[in-house]
Deep mutational scan, measured.
Amino acid sequence: DEIHIHFNGVTIEFRGLTEEAKKALEEAIKRGASEEELKELARRLIK
Rank of each mutant, 00 (worst) to 15 (best):
I46W: 06
E19N: 09
I29D: 01
T11K: 09
K39N: 06
L45V: 03
E36D: 10
K23G: 07
R31S: 10
G32Y: 05
V10L: 08
E40V: 10
R15E: 10
E40P: 00
K47H: 14
R15P: 13
R31E: 06
E27T: 11
E35K: 06
L25V: 10
K22L: 11
A28C: 05
I3A: 07
I12N: 01
R15A: 09
K30W: 15
T18N: 10
T18H: 06
K30D: 08
K23H: 11
K30G: 09
T11E: 05
G32A: 03
E26D: 09
K30Q: 09
T11I: 13
I29Y: 15
G9H: 02
K22Y: 11
K30T: 10
K30Y: 14
E35R: 06
A24T: 13
L25Y: 02
A28E: 04
E36I: 08
E36T: 10
K22D: 01
K22S: 04
D1M: 13
E35M: 14
D1K: 10
F14N: 01
I3Y: 15
L45Q: 01
E27C: 10
E26V: 12
S34F: 04
E20N: 07
D1G: 11
A33E: 02
L25H: 00
E37H: 03
F7N: 02
E2H: 14
E13W: 15
E36L: 07
E37Y: 06
G16S: 07
A33T: 07
V10Y: 05
A21H: 13
E19G: 13
K47M: 15
F7A: 03
L25A: 01
H4S: 07
R43T: 07
E36F: 09
N8V: 03
R31G: 09
L38Q: 00
V10E: 07
G16Y: 12
D1Q: 11
A42T: 03
I3L: 11
G16P: 03
I5Q: 01
D1V: 14
I3S: 05
N8T: 03
G9D: 05
T11C: 13
A33M: 11
E2G: 11
T18P: 12
K47S: 15
I46P: 01
I5T: 02
E35D: 08
R43Q: 05
H4W: 06
K30F: 14
I5W: 10
I29C: 04
T18Y: 03
L45W: 13
L25G: 00
E27I: 09
T11G: 02
E19I: 13
H6K: 06
R44W: 13
R43P: 00
A33Q: 02
K39G: 05
L17P: 01
G32V: 03
G9Y: 02
R31Y: 14
A33W: 09
I5G: 02
L45R: 00
E19K: 11
D1P: 11
I46V: 07
S34W: 03
L25M: 06
G9M: 01
H6P: 01
E37Q: 07
G16E: 09
I5A: 03
L17E: 01
H4C: 05
L41P: 00
V10W: 02
A24P: 03
E35G: 11
G16C: 12
E40Q: 09
A21Y: 05
K47N: 14
E40L: 10
K22N: 03
E27M: 14
E26L: 14
